[in-house]
Design a protein around this nucleic acid. Structure first.
Lengths: 345, 345
DNA sequence: GTGAAAGCGCTAACAC
DNA sequence: GTGTTAGCGCTTTCAC
């Protein structure tokens, strides 16, 4: 038997197609008895509305696009990051009968803007979720803005109060991590900065400084090394930091990949973790539980952030919520411990 | 200005909408001059065909669904695995103007079948790519088969010659890995088996035995430990293997996560890698380069496999290609070396 | 080579 | 509460 249409359902139920449409779309103004009659017809015919027809008639696509940095472009692909965002966006879509289109792209490419504009023109999504670090690249954001499609940025520190965006409290939680290390008796806490384009990652540095201040610890340039989010850069930073005159007793890296680099170097140098050196990361990537010892890190609520973003896009555009902040949480594992020889707290 | 339609283009170019349609769809039977005239109109109006209208009229959705095991369900999410498949499927879709819908699902759930049937009924994709290990679960495959939608299984060892499927040579390459270890002088090569449901993973075990045979090495049950693809199971297996009377000098795990577990245990026990113990994995997950020492493993051509599968689905169904095998490759890194005290070859 | 007419299966606007 | 009438923007069929 061929696919049944709304007309089949209508004639079987003995009503008009409009009534069927009302039942399917859960609109009001249908008597209970009629509704049940239609529902019986629907299930006996195994009727499923044709999405294309619905989209064409309703001028909506029921499609949400998730745009993120192409993992191929990274030194070490942070796949877990992407998967968790997809998970959240999918949850929002499934709950509402929408579909998710994923679109990894390389923000370093000259024509990302053009690429995204075409994507939007072609698929006419109901909304676009832009993940960090793309959400901080102005060419990307403005390409989507110009395409006149609703969008939400997944980014720390919402800047433009007119635009809805979903953020996490990178700064605050980084200060907390620094306090965690300070409370273990560490006085010389180093920081490895991340990719300068990634704004969230900059906030982590600010949070680190804030954390030092809160604990009455002085900030020193000697205790800061520059990284670029890759594990290799974490290794280089660790070598510099640990080879210095007064090496730190704790290293806080702006992401897990770099923290893993620190651990690798420590292993190579025979420096015990956490006995001689405490190491903390940020992201709680799957890597964090896979390195030895397991990494103390920060769990970003990526899935919840993406879910909130997609939900906002799907909701009635007139009642778009305020920009929201989903808090991250410390995950204390084995890589941090009392400062060596110190009077730990 | 509002979005332009095919009618706008037709009147601007002074032709009928059918001619515009022909140009857009690259159909023959349009004079070159006409074609150019239409193309000028298209670009001056920035015309983009409406997908929903096209799909409705053509009875196609231009959608490919990629179904895979929900990473949330795993102990250690193998996100890289999924990202690489997505990458390949996306490549095929982008090249042909199709879109990809991703659908992670839990194959342990009682109603996956129902869930997938509804997905297909709702989205009417032009094809479904089923990733391993789902491609070996009969309820899943038959749910999709019953939905009468074309599908391709990403699975080792195509069984049903009537069905198109894309595979890799797990068995052959596992034998090669075993030979690699044997050629380093290892005589006692252990194997950690993977999740019994994952057929590819079983083939790796067969390949291991084949490799032993090729190198004149005896197979021994004592050198086999059961795992379930998780890192924890790899650790347990390593403890059993290394604590036995005659411990192996090399351990080949059916996937990288378990191999990482072996490395963790060796680190904990103070066993040097590769000096005292060689370790090999399978998958070349990002983890493989993140553990210390970097893991010798097998690179599965996941992206190419998914691309081949999606391409086949998109192509004319009458010219569906033969089932194909995309070969995997050894990635020799630092975790394998000459057998200790042995007369290495 | 090109065009006219007839839908695809649904929703929107409005009548009843 | 429910039905009628028009489309939405394309592709298809077939005529010319």
């Amino acid at each position: 038997m061929a696919k049944s249409t709304i007309d089949d359902v209508a004639s079987l139920a003995g009503v008009s197609i409009k009534t069927v449409s009302r039942v399917v779309n859960r609109e009001p103004n249908v008597r209970q008895a009629t509704r049940e009659k239609v529902e019986r017809a629907i299930s006996s015919l195994r009727y499923r509305p044709n999405i294309s027809a619905r989209n064409l008639a309703s001028h909506k696509s029921h499609l949400i696009v998730l745009v993120y940095d192409d993992p191929r472009a990274y030194d070490v692909p942070s796949s877990g990051y992407i998967i968790r965002m997809q998970e959240g966006a999918l949850r929002a879509c499934r709950a509402t009968g929408n579909e998710l289109l994923i679109h990894p792209c390389d923000y370093r490419s000259a024509d990302v803007g053009q690429e995204l504009a075409e994507l939007v023109e072609r698929t006419r999504p109901d909304g676009v979720v832009i993940a960090a670090p793309l959400s901080n690249v102005s060419t990307i954001v403005s390409a989507i803005k110009d395409a006149k499609v609703p969008f939400v940025r997944l980014s720390p520190g919402a800047d433009d109060p007119n635009e809805f965006s979903v953020a996490t409290n990178d700064l605050e939680v980084s200060a907390d991590m620094t306090s965690h290390l300070a409370s273990l008796g560490h006085k010389r806490i180093a920081f490895i900065t991340g990719h300068p384009r990634h704004k969230a990652v900059q906030n982590r540095f600010t949070g680190y400084r804030e954390g030092l201040k809160r604990n009455g610890l002085p900030f020193s340039e000697q205790l800061v090394a520059a990284g670029d989010n890759s594990m290799a850069s974490g290794e280089a930073a660790a070598i510099a930091l640990l080879g210095s005159e007064k090496p730190p007793t704790a290293i806080f890296a702006a992401n897990d990949d770099m923290a893993a680099g620190v651990i690798r170097v420590a292993n190579r140098l025979g420096i015990g973790i956490p006995d001689q050196l405490s190491v903390a990361g940020f992201d709680d990537s799957s890597l964090a539980r896979q390195v030895y010892p397991a990494l103390t890190t920060v769990r970003q609520p990526l899935a919840q952030m993406a879910e909130a973003a997609a939900t906002a896009l799907i909701a009635d555009p007139d009642v778009r919520p305020e920009s929201c902040v989903v808090p991250a949480a410390l995950r204390v594992r084995e890589s941090t411990g009392p400062a060596p020889g110190g009077q730990s707290g």
